[in-house]
Design a binder for these strands. Structure first.
Lengths: 210, 210
DNA sequence: TTTATTATGTAAGTATATATTACTTATACT
DNA sequence: AGTATAAGTAATATATACTTACATAATAAA
């Protein structure tokens, strides 16, 4: 009993000496392999070989192969949400914030294709994912957007006759689906153009006025 | 040689006696199993048991387990695209057509959850999918929408200062992402409300006018 | 220094799944 | 009847995720 308490208190949240080096080697190895192959085609043997680590170590640090994938995604999301939260600071008005939110999201998907592949292609087919800690990070990301929308409705910048959740889902879906072809067929994204196009439709609609 | 001709000509497109009964049993069995389990968790043994068919028959009629999944999805898409094409007939104006397109898409996702699960969750993690015949059906579906958008730009109903492909991607992504929670967490969709919300944003934007 | 603990390393093995093979039986056509 | 094709099957090959049981090295506590 006392042992457990000791272990926990021995890891201050500030410094992070807790992460074992082999654990890191494993996550990095999976990232490298995911650049060229899909998750299902990557074997645990391959991961351990690439990480210069014994195969059984994967199961010491992660529940299973999928748990490892979730852990990798979780790291990405943690960083993404932290950056995005910071980037939104100091921006005034819901419209400007949404513009930034859209641009930054596209930027992140464009910037790290391993992240985008995991997030958009690899995790959703696994039912357990939506009960996972990792998925809670996605909810946090979506929550950021929701707050902005509600702020916009409050201030009168955004119409109050549409459910905020509909607006949120439309934005998130639009971002993902706009990035998807580039991720699947592996070509570059014109970040500015895509964000502008998307926001223009979002803010003013597709119908021609007058 | 003559034999092949005979075989082909012996299958008039009207009647469809060509499909071997066991092949149909297999696809139906997979559909049933997909109601409760994800594709990865379903074994070929399970499929054959459910279909009352020998396991090896799966590999006679389909390339592999994934090929079977693609075949099932292909059937769904064939029907969906055919229905949608018909449903759009007689509707005047791009705006009305888009409204119908959105409503019908949501309806189809809501109506058959096996279809939606395959389409939105199960196939995208497999790289080969995007080279498959089945994916060409998806492109056909997206093509229908693209035609409407171009018609709308032509007629002046839709703004001509945004790339049509951006509009298409936004619409498709919005539809999918709005349906996704209901599919994942298995609850009903309010088809009318969702379509109206989505189209309202799409046509007029989220900013408050005046 | 001794002891305990934790991190790491490894070999061998299990269980389960996909897919193949080689072969048999039924059906349909000429 | 005879032939070709479709349908059916058992046995097996092969690969892979995951487990077990144990060994070693480093570190920290006593």
């Amino acid at each position: 009993m006392e042992k457990n308490i000791k272990i926990l208190s021995a890891e201050p949240a500030s410094a992070k000496p807790s992460t074992p080096p082999s654990r890191l080697k494993i996550t990095e190895a999976l990232k490298v392999l995911l650049r060229d192959k899909d998750f299902n085609s990557i074997t645990t043997a391959e991961i351990s070989r690439m990480a210069h680590v014994n195969e059984a170590l994967i199961y010491r640090y992660f529940i299973d192969k999928r748990g490892l994938l979730h852990a990798v995604l979780s790291d990405y999301l943690q960083e993404f949400v932290a950056n995005l939260t910071f980037d939104l600071k100091g921006i005034h008005g819901a419209i400007n914030k949404i513009q930034k939110f859209v641009w930054a999201s596209i930027h992140y998907y464009d910037d790290d294709r391993v992240f985008s592949k995991i997030q958009l292609l690899e995790v959703r087919n696994f039912p357990g994912y939506f009960d996972s800690e990792t998925y809670q990070m996605v909810r946090k990301y979506a929550g950021l957007l929701m707050e902005i929308i509600e702020e916009g409705i409050e201030s009168g910048d955004i119409r109050n006759d549409i459910a905020p959740s509909s607006i949120r889902q439309l934005i998130l879906g639009a971002i993902e689906h706009c990035c998807l072809p580039a991720i699947i067929f592996d070509h570059k994204i014109d970040n500015d153009a895509m964000a502008d196009n998307l926001c223009e439709i979002l803010f003013h609609g597709i119908t021609r006025k007058i």
